[in-house]
Nucleic acid binder design. Sequence first.
DNA 1: CTCCAGGGGGCCA
DNA 2: TGGCCCCATGGA
Length: 223
Amino acid sequence: MDLKVEPQLSSKDLFLLYKHLYDYLGPQYWWPGETKEEISIGAILTQNTTWKNVEKAIENLKREGLLDFKKILELDKDYLAQLIKPSGYYNQKAQKLKNFAEFMLKEFGGKFDVSIDKWSLREKLLSVKGVGKETADSIILYAFEKPIFVVDAYTKRILLRHGVIESDKIEYDEIAKLFYLSIPEDVKIYNEYHALFVNIGKNYCSKRTPKCNECPIKKLIKD
DNA sequence: CTCCAGGGGGCCA
DNA sequence: TGGCCCCATGGA
């Protein structure tokens, strides 16, 4: 069971919530990363792992000049695994990075400024072994810069605690739909909204020490 | 010590 | 599709 917070929010309030959070917390400047390659690689490395550990892995790759799809594809898999060890699941993730690098080179010549429909792009990304919905959507939004809404564990937990959704068994795409129906289709908004949710999730809605009483959302709802 | 963090794939009924 | 297991490190 997950705790709930009174009063409750409705899915119709999601755009209002965004505007309030943005006014209150300001831009979050996501996704951290100097290049699209770095951003997309980070999206895979952060699977079920804290960002702090991912930073170490990225730093190792950057130091070796390996934030490059061609080099990742050619690199010895075990060596790649050692470099990304701090991010955990290193054997699996080494293979995932190779799968993704090969996909990007074959499909788009390693480029991100492609004029492909975002849903077609999503289908293609989901066909890569190691890229699930959240990872695909993160890559589409933050590297390809197309308006796809990213749903993560924080998003689900926050919506659950504020009564927007009833059950944590709700499907990923069903949660995303709540946002597509409530807010304008806009890369900037989707970018900031997800980042704001992570901010709130980390600081006020973590599983272990939920500081619901100090949560900005609780204060904002009182309008 | 236990539990969790910005998941995803494989297997099986 | 729904449930279950595996992957693996670092931090609270």
